[in-house]
């Protein structure tokens, strides 16, 4: 935020639930008993929703956004296709969201997660943990380095496979903006078959989760790049709010 500006405190645009997945989506079986049946209670944002914690860049370690090495033994790297994932976090007004915390997690290049509840037979990679994080700069820009995750099978239908994906948790400026989503890779043939993607019925909203290959930003002879922009809810400017100044 600019030092000569007061941070904006307007309420957020209502969430466009048509573009968001419903809670109850039988194609994704686990949602059947974990979805509220009663209507959500709508409420106008109060201070409790338009505020949020502050995450400072100082909390980050040097390797936090480098999943290729942040769990690896000294001098080693994770096995897999070397990639850079980068982009901007924007709000619905089109403005970059600075100081947004991104936390990412993913399977290794064979599609295996480092987790006690993981049951897939694919091999673990001793040099890959699977977590990374970064905080956007003044323009909402972020970047991290990783290896391309593999597709993996999961118990839903008898033969369901997840397309390659990276999970993203985003913490913008307010609790109302909190979002978890997944990034997919352009050209993945598993995308149209994925029950979790099919929880979203709006094809444009699905397309917006697919990162294109970004040949302009590859590092020759080293790593390919994918660009992934994420949009968080936008807020009304204080001028349109009938709340008292300072409220």
């Amino acid at each position: 935020m600019k030092s000569n500006q007061k941070p904006v405190s307007g309420s957020y645009f209502p969430r466009d639930r048509v573009r968001q997945p419903d809670a109850y989506t039988p194609c994704y079986k686990t949602s059947v008993v974990r979805s509220p049946h009663k209507a959500l209670i709508s409420m106008n944002n109060t201070l409790s929703e338009i505020t949020g914690p502050v995450f400072g860049h100082s909390m980050l370690g040097d390797l936090d956004n480098d999943m290729m090495t942040n769990y690896a033994a000294p001098g080693e790297t994770a096995i897999g296709q070397r990639i850079i994932v980068h982009g901007r976090v924007l709000d619905e007004n089109g403005n970059g969201v600075p100081d947004c915390l991104l936390e990412v997690w993913q399977a290794n290049s064979g599609g295996r997660y480092r987790h006690a509840k993981e049951t897939y037979v694919a091999a673990l990679d001793a040099n890959f943990g699977g977590c990374g994080r970064c905080i956007t700069d003044d323009n909402g820009y972020y970047i991290f380095r990783t290896i391309k995750p593999g597709a993996y099978p999961w118990p839903n239908g008898p033969n369901d496979w997840r397309p390659a994906h990276i999970h993203f948790s985003l913490f913008g400026h307010a609790f109302a903006q909190r979002l978890i989503t997944q990034m997919y890779f352009e050209g993945d043939p598993m995308i149209p078959h994925c029950p979790i993607l099919r929880t979203i019925t709006d094809q444009n909203a699905i397309n917006d989760l697919i990162a294109p290959i970004d040949l302009a930003n590859t590092i020759p002879m080293d790593a390919r790049a994918y660009k992934f922009d994420i949009v968080l809810r936008g807020r009304r400017s204080t001028m349109f709010e009938n709340r008292m100044e300072g409220n």
Partner: peptide, 15 residues
């Protein structure tokens, strides 16, 4: 712009 669609945190959100 439109808010990005949410996707489940999945079973491995802890990672």
């Amino acid at each position: 712009l439109k808010e990005s669609a949410s996707q489940t945190a999945g079973p491995y959100v802890h990672i």
